[in-house]
């Protein structure tokens, strides 16, 4: 059985300019421990899919099932890493990582032990007592990953987590994420507009069309693991990449000629 199933999900936003169809009949199935990546042009509604899976937004129609059970709202079983920096500035690195455990009422010494494990996993040992304001963008996202993982979620949702990082840091973070994913044995649904990133990370890449977002293609990435940045130069990588580039090309061309309507998200968590 699939770990996560998105079944015929559609989403329409009501804006002051009228209705905007963001997603149209999106379906996909993610197996346990699979690394799935959704890639698509900007404004295609890929973040909306993630918000729906996280329970932060409701579907207009369709359902999302996790282990066969329907998702109705946000929950600790689905951890999320955001593109924006969402570390709590009033907590140190350690307290940030402990947050989910604190919420669940885990005793302090166990919280500390678990937090230390994940802080070490993301390579930030020694930074436990630093406040987020003292961290670089890459380090902040490492802590955000540790914070999500410390909660031991069934699925890790990642919304362009490296989008705001410089190119070098991004590659380092991608390699780190693969290591963590192999260690932590978890299922990941990752959103990006970066094709290199998608192919590098994924078991399966889902290519989305422009608005209204639909799944245009499902591409299995059978590149050997463990992977590192050298894989970028292999013919297999390049051929997969050009396949996705071709799929996205016509979408981008069409999207660029149309007026972009600002995506407005639902007001549940304003």
């Amino acid at each position: 059985m699939s770990k996560l199933e998105i079944r015929n999900v559609s989403k329409t936003f009501e804006t002051r300019y009228g209705k905007v169809e963001a997603l149209k009949d999106v379906s996909l199935q993610i197996a346990p421990n699979e690394f799935a990546v959704i890639v698509g042009p900007s404004g295609c509604g890929k973040s909306t899919i993630l918000n729906i899976v996280a329970g932060l937004e409701k579907t207009t129609s369709g359902t999302v099932l996790m282990d066969g059970k329907e998702i109705t709202g946000p929950g600790a079983d689905r951890g999320m890493v955001f593109q924006s920096y969402t570390l709590f500035p009033w907590y140190t690195v350690r307290k940030n990582v402990e947050f989910g455990l604190l919420i669940r009422g885990v005793p302090a010494d166990e919280r500390r032990r678990i937090a230390e494990h994940y802080i070490e996993m993301v390579g930030l040992k020694g930074f436990e007592e630093i406040y987020p304001s003292g961290l670089s963008g890459g380090m902040k996202q490492r802590v955000a990953i540790a914070r999500a993982l410390a909660n031991n979620p069934e699925v890790l949702l990642m919304d362009e987590p490296f989008g705001a990082l410089d190119a070098q840091t991004r590659v380092v973070m991608q390699e780190l994420l693969l290591e963590i994913w192999e260690q932590a044995q978890t299922t990941i649904l990752f959103i990006t507009h970066d094709i290199d990133e998608a192919v590098f990370l994924a078991d399966t890449v889902y290519v989305m069309s422009r608005r209204p977002g639909t799944i245009k293609a499902r591409i299995s990435v059978n590149l050997p693991r463990p992977r590192n940045h050298k894989i970028y130069e292999t013919p297999e990588f390049i051929s997969l990449k050009s396949q996705i580039v071709d799929l996205l090309w016509e979408e981008s061309v069409q999207a660029a000629t149309e007026t972009q309507i600002q995506e407005t998200n639902g007001g549940m968590f304003r």
Partner: peptide
């Protein structure tokens, strides 16, 4: 209070009371 702080705490399992208290 940034919306993403609230969303992040919700995905970490916080309920309304906990969102107020801790965020």
């Amino acid at each position: 209070v940034p919306r993403d702080f609230i969303r992040a705490s919700a995905t970490l399992g916080a309920n309304t009371y906990q969102v107020y208290r801790y965020v």
